[in-house]
Design a binder for these strands. Structure first.
Lengths: 346, 346
DNA sequence: TCGTAACAATGAAACGATTCAAAGAATCCG
DNA sequence: CGGATTCTTTGAATCGTTTCATTGTTACGA
């Protein structure tokens, strides 16, 4: 109905100058208590709300940070987003969230949008090759931090998780609990994450003389793909079976679990131990609670914001040599029933 | 490094007036081809990007729409969000997403933020009682549409799903396939959704003379809660068992399924048919693919944006009588193996 | 009582885009 | 060729906030 009140209206109503109202809002210490009270009352009576557009315009930059993720539906990103939002809130910024859905054109649209909004900086989990765009952004004063993607430290800051270490952790755990004939279940190794996790597992297996690792290719990373692999396994004779299975993600592991437990001829973890990756919500409530590798998503989100703040500061001050950091987190082993106890080595 | 170029810089570079540059951007038809080319080239050379803050300031409102959901991790909302984003993009707006996480203070923070941003309007799935805040917002020219919550049509527009109809649909399906001794599994009926779904189920059962409906209270809506109920069921003697179970959501249903299939004494769907609600991704890849009730999330998101557009128009024109609409969608039955075939009535 | 310092309050200028009345150019027709 | 008409371009005014040099006020010590 009525146009919303401006700082000028407040000033008139409180019988002070506009600058004073601004001071009440931004530097309360500079204003006497009496005046402050009058202004605050006027603000209340008129229902004044700061116009952020005007503030930004004057300030030259906004208090928002752009965050573009590959898929908001993915619990990994959901968790990262939440942590980033909280960390940003602590430093007085808000996060604008964009979901590229693995689509390069949506990604590009969000970059445009955020640039028009003059965000302080950008956190991005990129789809395509955006290095050119990002360089351009930086030239225009918008720093970027790559999320879940290791970056060349001479060019960008980044936060990522060490998938090789995660793979090592999983395989090592199976070995530590006495399993020796391991199997890795994973989609095409063209996916970097899958390849790294496999490599880590191989590294662990190489450390134990009598251990072996078999690679079972799953065509995809879904429960159904896992069930396909599981069905292949249950048809084997007892001697050919692995005694420890590491799946490249939890969905695969749940699929394998469905197959193995279906016939009740194989027991988890007694006959076959099973471990997944990601520690999704369903892992804990599986028929046999699933051991998994948890990624430090909260730390990822929080650190991404911190690195961005560093970049923002660096741009603000004299343009010293660009100082980027690539922070790599180590995932964490979560032991549940699916890998409990020690297998009896034959 | 260098401050980003303004429309003035472009104007100088192209040797035209600032108004002309603005026209090239907003009303290309008003500008001759020659001038347009020169201006576009200047824009390109300087890497000019519109400053949205300035544009908003002048325009008095932004091109963004605020959307506050209860939980971005929830697939229901994820899907609504995506649909809303797409619909908004079509009308040239962008969606700012806020996740209240069922927390009233986070919700309140987002309302503040969006108000400072002067969003065109607000879509909200409210946590607490926000009617007062929303009334206030409307007075200040920010219309609201409630999402997933039926609103008094005289006060707000809203989009929601008919949970009673969903409950009816589920129970009716069990009855249609020959089941007669039904059970409803759901958390505290203080949750509106649970109560409505139960009520719909009761309505369906009342239509069939020899049918009965037993209510099994689950303390919560999780897989584990479902397994608790399932464990209680498998201990019953055959005569006391229901032959059709309707769970208030898919997580519960998956938990029940785990229990029932664990011992291999009961078969799904032959001995007991099972149907859930929400049609989450896991429903299709359960051990026995789970029948469910799907909510029209895309339609919800799209329609919410449409209703908001109506409200915006209504506020823009002469303040005629407020015209709100409450759109209620009917959910959809998804039949899978867990309710396949007909039970043999005793 | 005066001078000085510390503190408060003022209000014009600036941020960058859009708008719009007015001026200028081009075109057309009789 | 003159006048009317249409099409282009101009540039000052405006949006709401912050900034900052300036002015006004108060308090204090000498």
């Amino acid at each position: 109905m009525s146009r919303s009140a401006s700082i000028k209206d407040v000033a008139n109503h409180a019988r002070v100058a506009v600058g004073t109202v601004s001071n009440v809002l931004n530097y309360p210490d500079r204003v006497s208590q009496r005046t402050k009270d009058r202004v605050l009352q006027a603000i209340d009576e008129l229902g004044f709300v700061r116009n952020d557009a005007a503030r930004q315009l004057r300030a030259g930059h906004s208090r928002t940070i752009g965050l573009i993720v590959l898929d908001v539906g993915n619990p990994f990103f959901t968790s990262v987003v939440r942590a980033a939002e909280d960390a940003a809130a602590l430093q007085g910024s808000a996060v604008l969230l964009g979901d590229s859905g693995h689509d390069a054109s949506r990604e590009s649209n969000y970059i445009d949008l955020f640039q028009e909004q003059r965000v302080q900086g950008l956190l991005i989990s990129p789809v395509g090759d955006v290095t050119e765009r990002l360089d351009q952004l930086r030239e225009r004063g918008v720093p970027t931090v790559l999320v879940d993607r290791l970056a060349d430290e001479s060019r960008y800051s980044s936060v990522s998780v060490d998938d090789d270490a995660g793979g090592y952790l999983a395989a090592r755990h199976l070995l530590d609990t006495g399993r020796r004939r391991l199997a890795f279940v994973g989609g095409p190794t063209s996916i970097r994450q899958v390849a790294d996790r496999l490599q880590g597992a191989q590294r662990a297996v190489a450390e134990v003389p009598d251990a072996s690792l078999e690679v079972l290719d799953s065509a995809g990373q879904t429960v159904l793909a896992g069930r396909g692999v599981g069905d292949r396994l249950v048809r084997r004779s007892a001697g050919e079976l692995p005694d420890g299975v590491f799946c490249a993600n939890d969905l695969l592991a749940l699929g394998v679990m469905q197959s193995l437990t279906m016939l009740h001829t194989l027991r988890i973890p007694e006959d076959i131990a099973l471990i997944g990756y990601d520690d999704i919500d369903f892992a804990v409530s599986a028929v046999v609670p699933l051991s998994s590798i948890r990624q430090p998503t909260e730390a990822l989100g929080r650190t991404a914001i911190e690195l961005l703040a560093e970049e923002v500061d660096a741009m603000g001050s004299a343009s010293s040599r660009p100082h980027h950091r690539a922070v790599i987190f180590t995932p964490q082993l979560v032991v549940r029933q699916s890998t409990a106890g020690a297998a009896t080595p034959d």
